[in-house]
């Protein structure tokens, strides 16, 4: 299996297009960095002396909202309880909210680039099987003493490797650019996470990795879908087109559906954004983290079964 993955990586990284994708990601990070730096130079940050009063007022408003709407909506109640707990903790420990631009703001802004990484990963996934057919090389690839399913698996793992590498590049390059432009914050500011009814302090580095991975779930699912379409229909344009369309429209469409029908919760895109369970509201009332994870697993398995079954069985006539 190792050698097959080396083969796939050789094919991937010996193409200029792949390097252009990495260059685009790095340029985008630099752009975000420059934009933030420009903002910082023009409006130097000021410490708000009255932050405690302001926070206390917000806390009051949250409590009132909890009283009003929290009674009949379980998810909204969770949301406000979290907000209240975090704000109380801040007041208690005298943690002023961040005002200046830091390394962390760049790294967290850079999460927007995950969307671009998603597009690239979909393009790579869509080409994985379909290109072998359009190049005609599939005939020489499949007459080796290796089962077809193993070849397909090595291709899928290479897609994951590519996506993971892109995320790592995004994370490390944005950290480096942040360090160069803004320096290390003087005091390590923890992230306040709300888990099991109490507030815990978490390292910002760890929290960001966490966020990056959570926001990559829809990328993973769409890349898997693109890979499946590519293996089943052997057509990369179809795989790219359909996956990108769903990537941009799937979320919005599902939200529209979710406002009218309960069954929208079974749609893939209602479940891809897991961050709603940590700081937001799920699209359909009553959805839980466990439900979404099970739905995602079901979709994942179905995509793979389709891809492997069709690819291993069908005649190669290209």
């Amino acid at each position: 299996m190792g050698k097959l993955i080396i083969n796939e990586c050789a094919k991937l990284f010996r193409r200029t297009g792949t390097w252009v994708m990495f260059a685009i990601v790095i340029i985008m990070i630099l752009g975000i960095g420059a934009f933030l730096k420009y903002g910082e130079v023009n409006n130097p940050p000021q410490v708000n002396p009255a932050w405690e009063q302001e926070l206390a007022m917000q806390l009051e408003a949250d409590r009132a909202a909890l009283e009003e709407t929290g009674q009949n909506n379980a998810t909204l109640r969770m949301f406000y309880e979290r907000e209240i707990a975090v704000k109380e903790y801040q007041l208690e420990k005298d943690l002023a909210p961040e005002t200046g631009v830091t390394l962390w703001s760049l790294m967290s802004e850079a999460q927007a680039v995950i969307g671009i990484i998603g597009v690239f990963t979909i393009i790579i996934a869509a080409g994985m099987v379909a290109s072998e057919f359009s190049w005609g090389t599939v005939k020489l690839l499949l007459i080796r003493p290796i089962k077809r399913s193993k070849i397909l698996l090595s291709k899928y793992l290479t897609v994951l490797l590519f996506g993971g590498l892109m995320l790592t590049v995004l994370y490390t390059v944005s950290a480096l650019v942040g360090l160069v432009l803004f320096g290390m914050p003087e005091q390590a500011r923890p992230y306040l996470a709300f888990a099991d009814g109490e507030v815990v302090e978490r390292s910002m580095f760890i929290q960001l990795i966490y966020n990056y991975l959570l926001s990559s779930i829809d990328v993973l699912m769409l890349a898997t879908m693109a890979f499946m379409i590519s293996a089943v229909f052997r057509n990369s344009s179809l795989a790219i087109g359909l996956s990108l369309f769903l990537m941009f429209m799937g979320g919005t469409g599902t939200m529209l559906l979710a406002s009218k029908f309960d069954w929208a919760k079974y749609v893939l895109f209602a479940n891809t954004n897991l961050t709603v369970y940590f700081d937001g509201v799920p699209p359909v009332e009553g959805m839980t983290l466990a439900f979404s994870i099970i739905m995602l697993l079901i979709y994942f398995v179905v995509f793979h079964l389709l891809a492997f079954f069709v690819f291993a069985k069908r005649d190669v006539a290209a």
């Binding site: 190049w135 020489l140 007459i143």
Partner: peptide
């Protein structure tokens, strides 16, 4: 398949 070496139609290779 171990015992076979083949070119099916044109020998299409990875051009890059």
């Amino acid at each position: 398949i171990k015992e076979i070496g083949a070119i099916v139609e044109n020998p299409e290779m990875y051009k890059f």
